[in-house]
Design a protein around this nucleic acid. Structure first.
Lengths: 146, 146
DNA sequence: CCGTATCCATTCCGATACTG
DNA sequence: CAGTATCGGAATGGATACGG
């Protein structure tokens, strides 16, 4: 049995976020969505995910209004899955994972894909949380106030 | 049996990051670690996680050098789990989840904890990915280059 | 207090077969 | 092509009991 979920009652924003996107497949689906993937079969092939699991995750993400079902961009009879504004706002989470992975999970000189600015074609810089003075904040510079 | 893992062979930094921290409990453990939690029992009570699962996740995070086992800060005979530099760099991921949760998963006026700058006591601003011109980049402003 | 070991239920996931 | 249905194995997770 499943409760109706008034978001989730979790008081912590991190925990609540994880209730929605806190599993491996959902985040990989989001990554693909940011890369322009929109069709069921495209996700399936790109991820190598089982079809039933993919259908389940897509349904949940649509329920949570992270993705939305769109009529179809080309003439085909099928539907597509697009990011809502709420889903697009997860960009920073995906970028955070990407930059951490780049920094700490690749060997010296090992190749990986790069996020670049469309206009300039230049790689984007490090995403930072900035304080009042404009300087980057580290974890130790902050504290969670209840 | 477990292969030694040359990180994971995954070419995508996001996927590789998710191989290390891509499950709910690991990310909640990290959240707590950023909040200053260090002891086994503290994690256990804070999260309500089963002890065997917690032990498993802690072991994996230590293996991945996200956490490290420390001798003990107070006089007690036991060990503590602290963030390594690699682990501390996940700050942006946790902040990304937190800010997304705050923005999209709480009702109007619903209370939640807030991340504040220690020095000023002021809430931190929105974390942003910035382009060459210093302006915040949206997902649509970027593209992944293989 | 810290952790391991064991048991059991539930969930996750992949493979396959099936329907519009 | 897009999904649903089902099956079986693996992993997850909670509870409890046990030892350092």
């Amino acid at each position: 049995m499943k409760t109706p979920d008034p978001p989730t009652a979790e008081p912590c924003p991190v925990a609540r976020a994880l209730d929605v996107v806190g599993d491996r497949w959902s985040l990989l689906i989001l990554r693909d969505a940011f890369d322009g993937v929109r069709r069921f079969g495209e996700f399936q092939r790109s991820l190598g995910i089982a079809r039933n699991i993919l259908a389940d995750r897509l349904r949940k993400l649509v329920e949570q209004q992270v993705l939305e079902v769109l009529p179809a961009s080309d003439g085909s009879a099928y539907e597509e899955y697009g990011l809502t504004d709420k889903g697009a706002a997860l960009f920073r989470v995906i970028v955070g994972l990407r930059q951490w992975g780049e920094d700490h999970l690749f060997a010296q000189g090992e190749a990986h894909s790069v996020l670049v600015e469309k206009k300039s074609g230049a790689p984007v810089g490090r995403m930072e949380l900035r304080g009042r003075n404009g300087r980057a904040l580290q974890a130790a510079d902050t504290v969670v106030k209840k």
